[in-house]
Design a protein around this nucleic acid. Structure first.
Lengths: 344, 344
DNA sequence: TAGCGTAAGGTTACGGGTAACGCAATTGCC
DNA sequence: GGCAATTGCGTTACCCGTAACCTTACGCTA
């Protein structure tokens, strides 16, 4: 705190060079190991680097070479959702192995926050961007195009992405769940989620779900909570509200597993039996599901792999390898024990 | 992909200036709004900025001003653990409000990975670093000192941090749980965790726990899994191994709630009743715990607040406001229903 | 109307590296 | 021994903004 401000200066390459009695350029060559110097010079420079504790300034490197950095911007809606945390982990681990750094951006599910973040992160000359979701504001899209950096859009499968895309088809995901539940004999279905916005993956799943249910002569009553986080509480209270409004619901599909657990707990607390009195189905297959006594009927998505694949696609783009425009990483249904068994 | 490479160039400030018929410097002044230009000039420059889609290059700004960037490096062990994801969310949200960007580093609980990451991230001239844990490699410590940037060490309370610190006292945390369980009448206790390393918070909790139990004439048998992730599976199998080794254990304390849920599920699957036949206690108080029928005996730590507080301390350091060297954000015990009730 | 202040803008010199090029000394080859 | 090729290093210019300083034109006052 009260130290003199004279020690603030970082050691620069020229200081190392001067100490070693060579030119900046020679020191630079040694540090990059690109040859053009003798062994004795190399040893001398490296010795001075050690002595002075020199740390290169990567900003200058990027700046000088007019090349892009090793940063990869990654936008994620929120980390309260375990699923996104896993995606992020997959991305960062893989990127880290190849010398890239993740610059995080939490968008809170809003395009406005995403746009703000994109603007800032682009000004740092990132090597590329990984964005969650396929819907971006007009200005964001414009900036992204102008920036001309590799982009991987994840989560929603996007057959005509800005650049490349990896994810799953959320419509199909919802549709498959709807068909499965109809196949189990349910006709009066409920949905509890949080999104009022139509421009997101959860809404797309709901579309698919509704289509399948109605195609099977069923009906879907919906309850969308105003809270913007899809968690245990919103699942609990959303279920309470749904059941207060419509008595006839036989089975409820939730936006995600966290909400489904909340809903499960609500109906159990009201003395209902699952799946005897009501069916419960989630989405995302939380890790905890695998150790609970009742296996949640859900949809498994390989989240960690999604992240890793996104990172791999980014790395391939960065090294100009061919990359598929769009990659489907798939999902599969977990029958579980929270809906009654299909009688097929 | 196959586009000509001529569009790759980004528009620079001088191009904007030339287009507007003014000097670079005037354009710079307009963009920073620091005055010294007429309204007509301002309008003209801004019009050109819009037309050309100019995005400033922050690298150059940092570079020119010889000031630090708006990056804050944040090291986190892993995101599989929900608890760390919440801490990160707290940090990034708060930092984002003040125009800072989070550069993520997942250290996988190893000092080597942390050191590697520190070296890289420092070369980007970050404004500051937030590090999880108080134990760093010697070389890392050296680099951090030389870099002379604000540092906030989180998670472990550290009365003599490198710079500043916020977290909880893990020894006390373990101790309080030990005392509580002894107070519940347990004497033969078990511990299941993953850390073989003594240099981390979980090991410190175990120390505190052991001290309290032995102080109450109890005894602790331990089972440390070789897996490095503390999750449901390691909890499940760790419990199986612990119980195979020592039949007499009355109650088990786990490294975290995820492992405790795994353990709970194991003992239930063996037909044991909880807390009738055996007690189960976790740590961290996972959000899901609040909606499950059986409330896990655990220790609540305000994770999101921890992250926010860390970010606040960083922001204060960056604006040279006074910051406490060390801040305890506390914890409290959740009695729960997975251990038998204290008879005091 | 000289003298001065101020608004509006231009000029120059960096900052920390790197690409491109220059050049002397050594080595290889016939 | 003469010439070219290579090795080992230095010089210069540049990347894109900004701080510091300089210039010009105009208005006001004594």
């Amino acid at each position: 705190m009260s130290e003199k401000k004279n020690k603030n200066k970082k050691i620069s390459l020229s200081e190392v060079a001067t100490a070693a009695g060579v030119s900046k350029m020679t020191a630079s060559r040694v540090l990059r190991g690109e040859g053009g110097y003798s062994e004795s010079t190399r040893a001398l420079v490296m010795q001075k680097v050690d002595e002075l504790g020199y740390l290169p300034n990567r900003l200058a490197t990027v700046f000088a070479g007019d090349k892009s950095s090793t940063f990869v911007g990654v936008s994620i809606p929120d980390l309260g959702n375990e699923v996104f945390a896993q995606v992020l982990e997959g991305i960062d681990r893989k990127l880290g192995l190849f010398g890239h750094q993740t610059v995080l951006g939490l968008t809170q599910h809003t395009q406005k926050a995403e746009e703000e973040w994109i603007k800032t992160v682009l000004s740092w000359q990132p090597a590329g961007l990984i964005l969650t979701g396929r819907y971006h504001s007009a200005r964001a899209t414009e900036m992204l195009k102008a920036a001309n950096v590799p982009i991987v859009e994840i989560w929603d499968l996007n057959s005509s992405p800005m650049d490349t895309s990896v994810g799953i088809n959320h419509f199909d995901c919802g549709f498959d769940m709807g068909r499965y539940l109809v196949g189990c004999g349910y006709r009066e279905l409920g949905y509890v989620g949080t999104s009022h916005d139509t421009a997101n993956a959860a809404a797309t799943r709901l579309d698919g779900f509704t289509r399948a249910v109605e195609g099977g002569n069923g009906h879907v009553s919906k309850q969308l909570c105003l809270h913007d986080t899809a968690n245990y509480y919103t699942g609990y209270y959303g279920t309470e509200q749904l059941l207060a409004g419509t008595k006839s619901v036989e089975c409820i599909f939730y936006q995600n597993d966290a909400m489904a657990f909340g809903g499960l707990q609500f109906v159990l607390s009201k003395g209902m039996s699952v799946p005897g009195d009501i069916g419960i189905a989630g989405w995302g297959d939380l890790p905890i599901a695998s150790v609970l006594p009742k296996r949640m009927t859900s949809m498994h998505v390989p989240h960690l792999k999604l992240g890793q694949t996104a990172a791999e696609m980014m790395l391939a783009r960065l090294s100009d390898e061919p990359v598929p425009v769009c990659k489907d990483i798939g999902f599969h249904l977990i029958p579980g024990t929270t809906v009654r068994r299909a009688d097929n």
